[in-house]
Design a protein around this nucleic acid. Structure first.
Length: 336
DNA sequence: AACTCGGGGTC
DNA sequence: GACCCAGAGTT
């Protein structure tokens, strides 16, 4: 970091103001009351691209089902995904499960470098766990921190690799060596509650006096918005197979969209002829796909030879995981 | 550097 | 609708 951007006195002022503010104003969140590196890990993975308010209930249910790393390692994937269903980005749950099994003997890594080697733990999450659970003075830069740093130093570019690198450099100089966890949580808490994307509450901000964007009078204009692409339109044909009075679902192949979750057997609607006239459609928007599910019904049971545990009546799904998208499709059936 | 991975809160 | 969320892995 060059000193024209950040002098030592400014840095010290920001960190003491921020840490003091955080300790007086932090929200009571379930993972803040446990003092458990495993709980910090679980919460940080759930919080990837997911808002705090959404995570709270999932976190409590998860910790009740899998209180320790060993409990998670012993769990079945279906139970793991079942507790994750609705959170999205299901690979997070699969990687958490796998990682818990590879760490069964050693327990949680306690250094930044070791944490970075764990599947599903990247630069942000390694920084968060290191600082919050182990008191290691490393930065943790998420979307909130990018926005806060961008405004403090009037940076427009935080989304290119160059701009992101700059934010990490600043965060590294800024992080409080005495209380890195409170500092990093404070930056994120500030971004979530005060330094919001729109309508920031600058009059309540503890670091307002150090904020260049506030001084310029246009805090909202920093940083530049992340470039986004429109979700591509795509159609998937799904089939509700009926036998007797039951509708059957299957488990989607791992790896792809909604992999590992249960739902109607699907095929690309591009080339082949439809098996029947569709009985309904639902649209579900993913981050990168605007998907139209075209529902067909069939009384044929072509794949039923492999009945052992593979085809399950939707009525008997129980706690098996089904995505929100497939639940939308299922809702079509009951509307008749 | 671009792409793949969900779903929901909020304006 | 648009925008964003305590991102990571793969290509």
């Amino acid at each position: 970091m060059d000193e024209e951007t950040l002098d030592k006195q400014t840095a010290e002022s920001i960190r003491t103001s921020l840490v003091t503010w955080f300790r007086e104003n932090c929200r009571e969140l379930p993972w803040r009351e446990l003092d458990d590196p495993y709980a910090v890990w679980v919460s940080e993975v759930m919080l990837q691209q997911t808002q705090v308010a959404t995570v709270i209930d999932y976190f409590n249910r998860w910790m009740e089902a899998f209180p320790t790393l060993q409990d998670l390692a012993d769990a079945e994937l279906d139970d793991v995904l079942g507790l994750w269903a609705g959170l999205g980005y299901y690979r997070r749950a699969r990687m958490l499960h796998e990682a818990s099994q590879s760490l069964r003997e050693t327990g949680m890594p306690t250094t930044h470098a070791e944490l970075l080697e764990v599947k599903g733990i990247g630069a942000y999450t390694a920084g968060a766990i290191s600082s919050i659970a182990f008191g290691i003075a490393v930065p943790a830069v998420d979307g909130n921190v990018k926005r806060v740093v961008a405004r403090l130093f009037a940076l427009e570019d935080v989304w290119t690799s160059k701009g992101e690198g700059k934010v990490w450099e600043i965060a590294e100089e800024l992080v409080d060596p005495e209380s890195p966890g409170d500092f990093n949580e404070g930056m994120m808490e500030l971004g979530a509650t005060i330094c919001r994307p729109k309508n920031p509450k600058c009059l309540l901000c503890p670091v307002r006096e150090s904020c260049q964007a506030f001084a310029l009078g246009t805090p909202e204009t920093y940083p530049e918005p992340k470039p986004r692409k429109k979700p591509k339109k795509q159609t998937t044909r799904v089939v509700a197979h009926r036998r007797d009075d039951e509708v059957y679902v299957v488990r989607a192949e791992d790896g792809g969209l909604l992999g590992g979750l249960w739902g109607f057997p699907s095929s690309d609607a591009q080339s082949e002829d439809a098996p029947s006239d569709p009985v309904g459609e639902v649209v579900h928007v993913f981050s990168h796909i605007r998907m139209t599910y075209e529902l067909h019904e069939s009384s044929e049971t072509p794949e039923f030879p492999q009945m052992e545990g593979r085809w399950v009546p939707i009525r008997d799904l129980g706690d098996l995981p089904m995505s929100v998208a497939m639940k939308k499709v299922a809702a079509l059936l009951s509307m008749g």
